[in-house]
Amino acid sequence: MTPVTPSFPVLKLPYLAVKNVIKTMRISSMIYLAVCSKKMRSLVQSTFSKPNNMHIEIYERHLSLRVSGSICFEVAQIPTGQLRFQGRFRLKVCNMNLKDWFDLFMYAFRCDWIELASTSAWSHLRAAQLLEGREVSSLFLIHDNNDFIVKTLDMFMPTKELNLSNRPSKEEPYLRNIFTRNFDSIHLSFPISLEELCSINSASINIDFLSVKDFKKFLKNWVNGGNPRLQKLDVNVMKNDKKKKYMADYLSGIDINSFKIEEKDGDSWESFNIQRSDGTTAEVRIDDTHVRTHFAVIPKSN
């Protein structure tokens, strides 16, 4: 005789308690619950008080997913039609392929931001099938194969954030057209020219290298109205051996104010403000400890 499993009418509990039951479940149980019905999928989604981002890494045989940096799992389709989660448990659900699963995760985990990270073994076709009808918000392209980079950019140009580790090599105005897009943020891990920096139309720019001379020219360009959307720039400005000379190089020929030297918790930095004719002010902060220079527009007080 089969033992009878005691049942518990969870949906007859008060709404807050139902949410509490789901929130305290393991992620695997939450996923299985979301499979049960549309209503349960919607209840799982309601446990997330704010939208999440879905970070995806696509591999040949599996997906690696991370929801807002905290919920991590891998999903693989194995030949029998079963799906394997995190290599530990398997679930067989008829009529659900990897795309169905991905759509379910996007909905149940309330994800409205897709971060796509390139991997060495992904197929563009597979990624296109998975992301069909969806917008890629962020693209992390850490790859050195130029064909791969260009094809990925062509297929999955992000809407908000671009992170490129290598310069795509293609005839201009290819790169210029990318730089002039209205990204929220762009992170480039390869050297760019001053002209290229001045053409970037993102609100936040993170670049690895720039000479002191070019950085000074950038500041002058900004004072004269360049990079109008820019709110923040982080850059490693190549430092001269002698700090005094470095600072002198920075400051010569720039109209600065509020020069300060500060030290806190073993870190030290110098900062000064620059202003352009419309009254917009930016702070330039030279982090002496971590050898980074931060440029940030100071919000106008109302």
Binding site: V10, L11, L16, R26, S29
Partner: peptide, 27 residues
């Protein structure tokens, strides 16, 4: 409420969707 709901949540451990439907009486 937290601990009592956690006890109910623990009933889901190791269950397949079909088993969850039976345990939680899900339509």
């Amino acid at each position: 409420l937290n601990v009592s709901c956690k006890k109910v949540a623990n009933m889901a451990q190791g269950k397949t969707p079909a088993q969850l439907r039976r345990v939680y009486l899900l339509p």
